[in-house]
Design a protein around this nucleic acid. Structure first.
Lengths: 205, 205
DNA sequence: CAAAGATTGAGAATGTGAACACAATCACAA
DNA sequence: TTGTGATTGTGTTCACATTCTCAATCTTTG
């Protein structure tokens, strides 16, 4: 282990490794070699070992890596130890899909509340998550100490919601709207742009 | 313009530029400087100019770039000139969201048919896209000459669908299932993993 | 028409990440 | 206990990507 700077690319790959390891753990695998893990992640074995070497010696020579231990190590490196609270805004098609998805908790966060402006939806529960009136957005974010916001509303409303999330004190926003949101420096914003993802895929065919 | 090799990173950023430019075009902007475009994409101006320089001279010194011309140039570089046909498999929450999303055509492809196994859905149309019985998947893919598959079915069915898409002759697959699919070398596979996306966001807060 | 300001385009320098080769270490068997 | 095969860990080398710098060229203004 050395106190050197960690390559940005390495951090990015750790997420890949974690997902593959979680898969292996579900299948009951207890150990894995850098070779096998590399195949699952579509990278080279040497780069996996190099990546891990920045943080310590996690493996056993001649054997490989302990799957569960490695998961814990990566979780720790990526600050996924403690569960963060997330709020979902917009219970439409994408919103529903997110609420029904189980597996977020494995990766460090949990949707604890959802918001919508449709009277028919407000008050109901999906997967144990209550749907609240979006009118109460800012106040509820603050009282519940929510740090993450997921924007799944129509594009036209996305910008307004982003600003209200900022006022409610969230630290990071994940948006499904294909447009620019506020660019405040103290809020991290990520966009999931499905069209771009597809275009990228098409290019590499 | 030089006949050198194009950096992989450059290709990746072109998608970013394209999305930002489409946004600017919608706002009515006719020209844009590398400075402005850089702000929108969160990159440095010099790297934008460098990226474009691999393909030719698209700008006018002292003025900037013509937005619409630049869009056409990038579309051409990324092979997005001609629309590709895509099939959606699984008309659940995510599937519905995709069918209702307009804007894919701007990025080079179009969902022409959807498949599901639910009798209540088969035969209906969403946004002018017919929903067919998944039993006819392979044959319809071939007769309609579909090259892209989008998997939006539950995780348990994803693997089987991926194999059937391969048999139907698709060239690329976009999957929303958080798991490994077949790894045939002649098919491109991309996964949209929402949990990983969120985890990445959390790390950079 | 000349000068000033703005902006692109590209060669050179710098920095960063990946590939390689090999040393170090472990399990297991004889 | 000693040798063999397997696998990790790491220093070095190389390739690639980014940044720097400045010349070239356009628009605008006086």
């Amino acid at each position: 282990m050395k106190p050197k700077t960690i390559p940005e690319e390495t951090i990015g790959r750790l997420f890949l490794y974690l997902r593959a390891l979680l898969c292996l753990a579900r299948e009951g695998k207890e150990t894995v070699s850098s070779q096998k893990l590399a195949e699952a992640c579509h990278v080279k074995p040497t780069i996996i070992r190099k990546d891990f070497s920045y943080f310590g010696e996690f493996g056993t020579r001649g054997v490989g890596y302990d799957v569960n231990q490695l998961i814990q190590e990566i979780r720790h490196i990526l600050n996924l130890d403690n569960l963060m609270k997330a709020a979902l805004i917009g219970v439409g098609n994408i919103g529903m899909a997110l609420l029904n998805y189980t597996g977020f908790e494995e990766e460090g966060f949990k949707i604890t509340v959802a918001f919508d402006n449709n009277r028919d939806k407000i008050g109901k529960k999906i997967n144990n998550v209550p749907i609240e009136d979006v009118a109460h957005l800012e106040s509820m974010l603050q009282t519940q100490g929510i740090q993450l916001g997921i924007i799944a509303v129509p594009e036209s409303a996305a910008s307004e919601i982003a600003q209200r999330l900022a006022q409610g004190g969230v630290k990071a926003i994940l948006s499904f709207a294909p447009c620019q949101l506020i660019t405040s420096d103290n809020i991290q914003i990520a966009c999931v742009d499905l069209a771009t993802e597809m275009a990228r895929l098409v290019y590499y065919l």
